[in-house]
Design a protein around this nucleic acid. Structure first.
Length: 1137
RNA sequence: GGGCGAGUGGCGGAAUUGGUAGACGCACUGGCUUCAGGAGCCAGCGAUCGCAAGGUCAUAAGAGUUCGAGUCUCUUCUCGCCCACCA
């Protein structure tokens, strides 16, 4: 027998797999497919470190096992190669990033291949390859054409060190995620992707996928959906109204002031009225200078300035309230303004306390359930403490001698504070009680034992002090009623605790002990709130929203924490954004025709407004009334427009059709000869099918048969706007229209439902105007993709923050693809996230030159069945790639809405010192050295054996010795091989147990225990003098996913031809797992005293008898008769003495 | 502050989900073998009492449920991760 020499056999089998193309796959309908995915690496100059392969090895084991189970396995690999480190390296050395990247990829490839992963290398992708990023650019253009990419000037996070704009997501604690330096705010025009439009869809999709719970929770938190209301607060003496978002509209009666974020733009509009403008302005300037970090520093004192001279009006009660600016309100969330309810919000409370603002209690805690037939009362309770003791009264009338707090009913016309002082005097005789603080109000529902009725009592609690010990004599009645004591506080609490009747008193004592400060931020019962009083928080929310909507001062609103995605980078090493800016196109004047809908006309809704806005910008507009509007004839209406239009239908014309104007527009487009510049469809009808009521007039209005080919040919740009909240026109129809006509569908939130009005009002719809106006941003035609990165001299971003591409005037100056005039290219590039947001789709068909991947391949392989990656990517990468996939699904490119059916995460591998591996710490372990010393198989096994897969573990090279020894023992087992068929029943049973365990453990990613079992099996085989070839081969098969090289070699040496990678995965036989005898434990009073061997089918009676007769048991019984004997079948006998 | 997770030998970690705690591996100790070894083989290895048989105590701490708890419930402590003025 030769020695086990990993170096020799590993290179041998790697060459074999490569030559045989063993792991290359194609679509095969006859087999069940399995798509296993790992996060493709960023090919850094440092090469692979020992942490990278954890995920790859795990997924390789799973894929190899699935292959042996007969599945058609796609296990691809690629490189996410755009990124800052390479660019920074280029800046330092002047070497082109493409060249450096190619070298790094070659090195990574060599390293990955040396570990024996069963990747399909023929499908490797590289995000920096123009053949790949052509499709990244193509997807961006689809976003653009569907109105989901827009440019916006806004404050962005700017890292002065990296000279790069950062997405909110990349800022951690106010510092740059990459370099750790502080982040500043800068105003910059940025390309944005409207991920917020997919917020609900991204949330919804989580329900159908199998992700580890943590990933789901993190995604949910990141999206941060909250339901509440938008409420307008009129500003006194101005035409303005401040809109606030709140999740607690039920507390509106307690809103005692308004707070604006320093960024809020209404402040400048109110300038004339603000009497302390300079104070306000300097506060705002201060806030702006501060970083997010400073503004949100933990436990920071609240700061703020009142806007003197202006007041807002609380729409619920008409009260005048003050307006403040404070940086505890964020400009970027909600409306950038809040209604402050200090009694029920911690932050508002702190602010109100600091600035002495009124605190009004409008929600109270509820104790007990309300009962029918009840008596309502207002009562008070007081806590008086002195020297660690508190004052307690005892009610003798009930016969139960119950303890209570001093207090009682509030008389008509008496303040609750006064009534407490009166009650104290009557019950105890103390005359010098003085109230020092409030404990809030509680609604108490209970049965009154003495009065024998149900009570609903609104109880106010107070803390009072006795200024001296003066006492007056109590009345006879009072003395008979009860007595009073001083009890230690805890003792008093104990006395009250046990009776449910006194949960109110206990709550007040607890509030007192916790230093209750009159803040109650939980749900409860509305109080002092006019028509809301008495309603539960949820009922009150519903009622007030309905009320606000009816009054027209507010509405229901869903708000997200998720912000749109800043998609621009002012960098070189990224995908160029394939747009040009053309001033000529932007400034061009058009002729507009506006076509109204069913039962409408030209002078209501958004149409007159749109006409005015367009005319003001120098365009010409024809906004006619159509004939036969109430019983429409679409063909006639189209003809009417064709006959009467004051403009020719050509490249200078833009058509806008609303609702039933849509079909009119299709008919016009069918008939015209030349192509018009643009068509804007506003909630257009496509089929006369509606989700609410039938509209028979519309069925008859035309043949509903349109020649989409012609229509498409007669229009340049198409935009379809749909009201997200208008279900009557089906979204599927709109999607179909978008597909037929090749236009962008934008699902939006117009100001008015269906962009129309019930009455004759004129409404503004800025989104319609935006869609109708010419844009200066012109997409490159798809035939011009990829737009390749030009070669530049310098990779350093400019100090103004522009991309190095901006200096390439030859490249920047170009021709407008639309008008042929001179235009400028966009010089921003895409962020790193772009290429990795869709790579899993490209793997399905990586060579495709016509599409990002063929429909057929995508339909076969998608979704990814199992995606494993790092915990650090469960928020952003996962969210972004789900967003892209959902969008691609919506435009008919991706076959499934969700890209990943299952997502798991591995724990990081730390350096030997327990710290995160990094070059700067000098604790990086290089896999090359490990392979050299111990072999790839040992390295793979150790990576999986070192600890639970989902938890971080520190690297320990010593541990490798153990698995290396194990492999050597496997190798040496050959010596025990005998050729003839032999059976060893004990071993056979163990083998089958282990097949079961390993099969289950691999699926559950419990690799450490799977390997432990393989070691056990090996040890068992070692104990035996001889070993059958069958058993040995079973072991080899189980081993092969973990240590494929040695498994191939030994498989071969046992006389098998071909690769073990496609041998059949062993199945276990449940009947063989069961053994004839079992060890039964005997416990006495829960302590193990003895064990005995017995037949599995031992009867209960026999088991008990044998147990009792065991020598050691008898000794412990000591002649006593057991009280009870319990038998757990096949496991133990438990004897109770 | 909020959410999630975890605390078991000298170390990494097992424990059929309520049933013999410490599988498997590392390190360590003793013995055998070898020219040699970061090699192999055999044995031991939670603490404690005992020559031993055997006993007692042990899964962060404390209480509870149970014939029986590492596992379930409550309280407390410690650590890790993520989020954090999100109205």
């Amino acid at each position: 027998m030769e020695r086990y020499d990993p170096k020799k056999i590993e290179s041998k089998w790697q060459a074999f797999w490569e030559k045989e193309k063993a792991f290359e796959v194609r679509e095969d309908e006859s087999k069940k497919k399995f798509y296993g995915l790992i996060e493709f690496p960023y090919p850094s100059g440092a090469g692979l470190h020992v942490g990278h392969p954890r995920s790859y090895t795990a997924m390789d084991v799973i894929c190899r096992k699935r292959r042996m189970e007969g599945q058609n396995v796609l296990f691809p690999i690629g490189f996410d190669a755009f990124g800052l480190p390479t660019e920074n390296f280029a800046i330092k050395t002047g070497r082109p990033p493409a060249e450096v990247t190619a070298e790094n990829i070659a090195n990574f490839t060599r390293q990955l291949k040396s570990l024996g992963f069963s990747f399909d290398w023929s499908r490797a992708v590289d995000t920096t390859d123009p053949a790949y990023y052509k499709w990244t650019q193509w997807i961006f253009l689809q976003f653009f054409k569907h109105g989901l990419a827009y440019k916006k000037k806004q404050p962005i996070n700017w890292c002065p060190k990296d000279k790069i704009g950062l997405a909110n997501e990349e800022v951690v604690d106010g510092c740059c995620e990459r370099c750790g330096g502080p982040v500043e705010k800068r105003e910059k025009e940025q390309w944005m992707l409207s991920i917020t439009k997919y917020a609900d869809s991204l949330l919804e999709g989580l329900k159908d996928v199998d992700y580890i719970e943590r990933a789901k929770v993190q995604q949910k938190n990141w999206i941060g959906r909250s339901e509440g209301a938008l409420i307008g607060f009129r500003v006194q003496g101005s035409g303005f109204s401040i809109e606030v978002f709140t999740t607690r509209p039920d507390t509106i009666f307690g809103a005692t002031y308004i707070v604006l974020a320093p960024e809020h733009d209404i402040i400048s509009k109110l300038e004339n009225q603000i009497s302390n403008l300079s104070d306000v302005e300097s506060y705002i300037a201060d806030a702006r200078r501060k970083t997010d970090m400073e503004r949100s520093a933990l436990g920071k004192e609240k700061t703020g300035v009142e806007l003197n001279g202006v007041k807002a009006v609380n729409p619920a009660n008409g009260e005048e309230i003050s307006i403040w600016v404070a940086d505890y309100v964020l400009g970027s969330y909600g409306t950038g303004a809040i209604m402050a309810v200090p009694a029920h919000d911690e932050r508002d409370f702190a602010f109100a306390r600091k600035f002495g603002l009124p605190i009004k209690e409008v929600v109270i805690q509820q104790i007990g359930t309300r009962l029918e037939d009840r008596h309502e009362r207002r009562t008070v309770r007081g806590i008086c403490v002195r020297d660690g003791k508190m004052l307690i009264t005892q009610d003798k009338r009930t016969g139960t001698n119950e303890y209570i707090l001093p207090g009682g009913g509030v008389e008509e016309g008496e303040g609750s504070e006064n009534s407490l002082l009166r009650e104290v005097r009557e019950e105890t005789g103390y005359t010098s009680a003085k109230i020092i603080s409030s404990l809030g109000t509680i609604e108490h529902n209970f049965y009154h034992h003495y009065r024998k009725n149900n009570r609903i009592s609104t109880v106010s609690g107070y803390v009072f002090e006795l200024e001296n010990d003066e006492v007056i004599p109590r009345t006879r009645e009072e003395i008979e009623k009860g007595d009073f004591f001083w009890l230690p506080i805890q003792e008093a609490r104990e006395k009250l605790k046990d009776s449910p009747t006194f949960s109110l008193e206990v709550e007040f004592i607890d509030r007192f002990l916790k230093g209750h400060n009159n803040l109650f931020s939980e749900n409860g019962v509305a109080f002092n709130s006019d028509f809301l009083s008495g309603l539960s928080t949820n009922e009150a929310k519903e009622k007030i929203i309905a009320w606000l909507e009816e009054k027209g001062v507010g509405k229901r609103q869903v708000q997200y924490k998720l912000r749109d995605w800043v998609f621009s980078r002012q960098r070189y090493w990224g995908e160029p954004i394939p747009l040009v800016h053309c001033d000529v196109c932007r400034d061009k004047k058009y002729n507009y025709i506006i076509i109204h809908g069913f039962t409408s006309n030209s002078h209501i809704g958004f149409k007159p407004w749109l006409e005015k806005e367009l005319c003001e910008r120098g365009h010409k507009v024809w906004n006619p009334d159509l004939p036969n509007t109430n019983t429409p004839n679409i063909d006639e209406q189209a003809q009417f427009i064709l006959d009467n239009a004051p403009f020719p239908f050509d490249e200078h014309t833009v058509l806008v059709g609303h609702s039933l104007g849509g079909p009119v527009l299709y008919k016009i487009l069918e008939k015209i000869k030349k192509s018009v510049a643009k068509a804007v469809f506003v909630d257009p009808v496509i089929f006369p099918e509606f989700t609410d009521v039938p509209r028979p007039e519309l069925n008859k209005s035309c043949d509903w048969n349109f020649d989409w080919k012609k229509i498409k040919a007669h229009v340049g740009e198409v935009i379809i706007l749909a009201d997200a909240n208008f279900p009557v026109i089906k979204k599927e129809h709109l999607e179909e229209l978008a597909k037929n006509i090749g236009g962008g569908l934008q699902i939006i939130y117009p100001n008015v439902r269906h962009f129309s009005t019930k009455n004759d009002a004129i409404t503004a719809e800025p989104l319609v105007l935006e869609a109708a106006l010419p844009s200066g941003w012109i997409p490159l035609p798809e035939s011009e993709l990829p737009l390749k990165l030009p070669k530049v001299e310098k990779y350093q971003p400019t100090d103004t923050g522009e991309s190095p591409l901006a200096a390439m005037t030859d490249w920047v100056n170009t021709i407008c693809p639309k008008c042929g005039g001179s235009a400028k290219r966009e010089t921003d590039t895409m962020p790193n996230w772009a290429g990795s947001s869709w790579y899993f789709l490209r793997y399905a068909d990586p060579e495709n030159k016509k599409e990002l991947a063929s429909k057929k391949a995508l339909e076969y392989w998608m979704p990814v069945d199992w995606y494993n990656g790092g915990m650090e990517h469960t928020v952003l990468h996962l969210l972004y790639s789900r967003f892209w996939n959902q969008f691609l699904f919506d435009i008919g490119v991706a076959p499934t809405r969700e890209p990943y059916a299952k997502r798991t995460s591995h724990g990081l591998i730390m350096g030997p010192d327990g710290e995160k591996m990094s070059k700067s710490r000098g604790n990086v372990v290089n896999p090359d050295e490990m392979v050299e010393q111990y072999g790839a198989d040992a390295l793979r096994m150790y990576i999986l054996f070192m600890g639970p897969f989902d938890q971080p573990v520190a690297w320990d090279t010593n541990g490798l010795v153990g698995v290396k020894r194990f492999l050597e023992r496997i190798w040496k087992l050959q010596e025990k091989l005998v050729r003839q068929e032999v059976t060893n029943p004990r071993l056979l049973s163990i083998v089958h147990q282990i097949i079961k365990k390993v099969t289950e453990d691999v699926e559950a990613m419990r690799f450490n225990t799977a390997i432990a079992k393989l070691m056990e099996l090996c040890n068992e085989m070692y104990k035996s003098d001889w070993l059958s070839a069958d058993s040995y081969q079973l072991l080899l098969k189980l081993l092969s996913p973990f240590a494929p090289h040695i498994a191939e070699e030994l498989w071969n040496q046992t006389g098998e031809e071909g690769s073990i990678a496609f041998a059949e995965w062993p199945t276990y036989d449940e009947s063989l797992i069961k053994t004839d005898t079992v060890t039964i434990a005997v416990q006495i009073n829960g302590k193990l005293r003895d064990t005995f061997e017995a037949d599995v089918n031992l009867s209960e009676q026999d088991a008990k008898q044998i147990a009792l007769s065991q020598p050691n048991v008898a000794k412990h019984l000591d002649g006593k008769a057991p009280k009870k004997v319990i038998y757990v079948k096949g496991k133990l006998v438990s004897i109770v003495l």
